[in-house]
Computed example of a mutant assay.
Amino acid sequence: MKSLHVVLLFITMVFACSDNNFPEADAIINKSIEVSGGKRFEHSTIDFDFRDRHYKAIRDKGYFLLTRTTLVGSDTIVDALNSKDDFIRYRNQKKIQLHDTMAVKYKSSVNAVHYFSVLPYRLNDDAVNKTYISKTKINDTEYHKIKVTFNAEGGGEDFEDVFVYWINADTFKADYIAYSYAESDGIGYRFREAYNERYINGIRFVDYNNYKPKGSNIDLMAMDRLFEQKALNLLSKVELININVQVSDY
């Protein structure tokens, strides 16, 4: 009988952990997506400028087309990525044949800018894994701390990247993001602080202060503490300008 009680206790603990992690993380991310634009993302055309390049995203019922346009002298270079994972580069409207390694590099770059531009949208993709870490505070404001990882299948070329989101416990907006990524000489770390929030046609956009740790031996989960301790260097600003949004009926 005592063994049965131990087994039942173990099962209860397993289900309790499951309930406290994945379902809660899903609910918080769902709410964050909702307050940031919700279904408007799924039927939208968004274009903006970022660092001297023009970006455009067309999304409709699961289909998407992401483009980046670069002017090089008298040439117009357009990189295009769609939901079928097809990537094509055009120069002056003519398709260019790329080496596989360069195509992967360009595709990843285009996807990354579009991905960050509409966060937390796409955190419900099939390849995304979400884990609730804890409630915490940054500068006396309470946040839900959520870890995000990706499956190899469907997670893109950078599926080994790990993200942490701090979702405001009152507004459910993503105010801070940290992530780790592969560099040629190891693992890189970044921490982003959202600012300049604005809603355009019902969709939330922010800019970011982009920070890098001052030291080594970094713990991704402790990036919020480093931020509070001013142990991060401001590396750059991530600013979207000339944003236009069109939303179809949904």
Rank of each mutant, 00 (worst) to 15 (best):
Y115T: 09
D125N: 11
S109M: 07
Y132T: 06
P120H: 08
A112F: 06
N139L: 15
L119K: 04
A127N: 11
K137N: 10
A112W: 01
V118W: 07
V128E: 03
K147I: 09
T136E: 12
V118E: 00
K147E: 06
Y106R: 00
S134E: 07
V110I: 03
V118C: 13
N111P: 08
L119N: 07
K147M: 02
D140V: 15
H114N: 04
K137Q: 14
A112C: 06
K107Q: 10
N139A: 11
A127H: 05
F116D: 03
K135L: 12
N129Q: 07
K105G: 05
L123Q: 05
L119A: 08
Y121G: 04
K130A: 14
E142D: 13
K145N: 05
R122W: 13
K145F: 15
A112S: 01
F116C: 07
N124I: 11
I146Q: 10
Y106L: 00
K145E: 06
E142I: 14
S117M: 01
Y132E: 08
N124K: 08
L123K: 08
K105C: 10
V113Q: 09
S134A: 11
Y143M: 05
D140A: 15
N124A: 10
V128Q: 09
S109F: 01
Y115M: 04
K130P: 12
K130H: 04
T136M: 12
K147G: 11
Y121V: 01
K107P: 00
K107T: 02
K130W: 12
V118H: 02
K137G: 12
L123E: 06
K130G: 11
S117C: 01
L119V: 05
T141Y: 01
Y132N: 06
L123I: 11
N139M: 09
I133S: 03
Y115S: 11
E142T: 03
S109C: 07
Y115I: 00
K145S: 14
Y143L: 15
K145R: 15
N129E: 08
N111R: 03
V118N: 03
A112T: 05
I138G: 07
T136W: 13
Y106S: 08
T136D: 12
I133W: 00
N111G: 06
K107G: 00
K145G: 02
S117W: 00
K135A: 04
K137H: 08
I146G: 01
K145H: 08
E142H: 09
I138C: 03
S108N: 09
S109V: 01
K137S: 09
H144M: 09
F116H: 14
S117H: 02
D140R: 14
K145M: 04
H114G: 02
T141W: 10
Y121R: 03
T136C: 13
T141Q: 04
K105I: 01
Y121W: 12
K135T: 11
K130V: 09
E142W: 06
K137W: 12
N139H: 14
L123T: 05
K137V: 15
P120F: 02
R122F: 12
N139D: 14
Y115D: 04
D126M: 15
Y143I: 04
T136F: 13
K137L: 13
S109I: 01
D140P: 15
T136A: 12
L123D: 00
S134R: 04
T141C: 09
